[in-house]
């Protein structure tokens, strides 16, 4: 494999093992998609109906959004698969700095009303 031409068309099919794991993956992806649709709709209905008090609705829909994002990152973007430790480090460092950025901007600009 030392002189592989990277622009050559890859021939053949996936191995039987790969085929099997892809079939399993397809099912898991469709399931997580349905679950995400369900969560988006729940968040939408929580706000659209007047029955649910605001004090409960705000933390609830923020939680739904966070769960949905984690599912996107780990299932759709495969952060859960093996050999992705550094990708995880990159993303979680980003999220860590992001959380501090949001908090500090809200405190710095939000106090004085323009």
């Amino acid at each position: 494999m030392s002189h592989v031409d990277p622009s050559a068309r890859l021939e053949g099919k996936a191995s039987r093992d790969t085929e099997r794991s892809l079939k399993r993956e397809t099912k898991a992806q469709i399931a997580s998609f349905v679950f995400m649709i369900f969560m988006t709709s729940t968040a939408f209905l929580t706000v659209a109906s007047d029955a649910i008090p605001t004090g409960f609705a705000i933390p609830f829909i923020l939680l739904l959004a966070s769960v949905q994002v984690i599912m996107q990152l780990y299932y759709f973007m495969h952060l859960n698969s093996k050999g992705n430790a550094w990708a995880n480090v990159m993303m979680w460092s980003g999220l860590f700095v992001a959380a501090m950025t949001v908090a500090s901007l809200m405190l710095l600009i939000g106090v004085t009303k323009y």
Partner: peptide, 29 residues
């Protein structure tokens, strides 16, 4: 490419966080 792109996405997260923070601070004004 794969690793570098995750590094980029981490940075993009912070870019959007700065815009989210600004919006949340100013949305009542």
């Amino acid at each position: 490419k794969y690793l570098g792109f995750w590094f980029f996405l981490g940075g993009e997260t912070v870019l959007f966080a700065s815009l989210f923070g600004t919006y949340l601070a100013l949305r009542g004004s």
